[in-house]
């Protein structure tokens, strides 16, 4: 292990170049293939869908998630590193699967967070996670999924179809509150959302309902910002934020 330092830098440049080039190529391919799915349905069926329907629906989704298109890549970049970014935003399930996998791998080989070793280890770990995930999805959902649904009795399928959304949301919200551990923002979000959804929406025109979540998000951000603990900020120089 007496390789000269410049050679190691060349190796790292080679790694960066390969992951950057192929990250871009594979992500663009993935983007085109995945977006082709709804467009194929739109053009192959005649369901009387107008472009305005799609624009309105897209705006409703963008109003809630638009900020995450930018915020999420920025948030995950320090954890994943450049190479991991191209993997994570293709494979999905970042916070519930990929980031935990990377952390487990880094602690297994004892790589310090923020080092080059940690970043390489995260990339290898995400490759392992991708293989496991792709195989389980292909076999259990792709091949056996419809069969699994078909052997499930109708009343259970019906209940699953009707109530899957509240069954996911209750758990995810609790997990989110526990993970973020921000008492003040949590209380503000719950109160603001309850006021918007239960008090404002029922007495407003139907249009308001489409944007209820967006209104709650914006109001919560503004109130949380003005109600933030300013003492914490003033002492942030000393790196004792928590």
């Amino acid at each position: 292990m007496t390789t000269a330092a410049p050679d190691l830098e060349a190796l790292h440049r080679n790694y960066s170049k390969t992951t950057y080039l192929w990250g871009n190529v594979t992500m663009v391919a993935c983007l085109l293939l995945a977006t082709a799915v709804p467009f194929y349905l739109y053009f192959s069926t005649d369901l009387g869908i107008e472009v305005s329907h799609i624009v309105t629906a897209f705006i409703a989704v963008a109003a809630v998630y638009g900020v995450f298109w930018v915020v999420e890549p920025v948030t995950y970049f320090p954890i994943l590193g450049p190479a991991g970014m191209y993997q994570a935003f293709m494979i999905g399930n970042i916070s519930n699967k990929l980031v935990p996998s990377a952390i487990v791998a880094q602690s297994t080989i004892g790589a310090e967070p923020g080092t080059r070793k940690a970043s390489y280890s995260a990339t290898a770990a995400i490759c392992g996670a991708a293989v496991v995930h792709v195989l389980s999805m292909l076999v259990l959902v792709g091949l056996l999924g419809t069969w699994l649904v078909s052997i499930t009795p109708e009343p259970i399928t019906e209940v699953a179809r009707l109530y899957i959304l509240p069954a996911i949301l209750g758990g995810v919200t609790v997990q989110l509150i526990a993970t973020l551990n921000q008492v003040r923002a949590t209380i503000i979000a719950l109160v603001v959302s309850a006021v918007v959804v239960l008090l404002i929406v029922p007495f407003s025109p139907p249009l308001v309902k489409s944007f209820a979540t967006a209104i709650a998000v914006i109001a919560t951000i503004v109130i949380t910002w003005y109600a933030r603990d300013r003492k914490v900020r003033s002492s942030s120089d000393t790196a004792h934020i928590n």
Binding site: F68, V71, L169, V192, V197, T213, A219, T220, T224, W225
Partner: peptide, 23 residues
């Protein structure tokens, strides 16, 4: 401070509102 507050507040509000809509 902005970067530490906005994403968390947005996530919490989005899921709180979506959940309360089910109630």
């Amino acid at each position: 401070a902005l970067m530490s507050i906005v994403p968390a507040a947005a996530l919490l509000a989005a899921f709180a509102a979506l959940t309360i809509t089910e109630i």
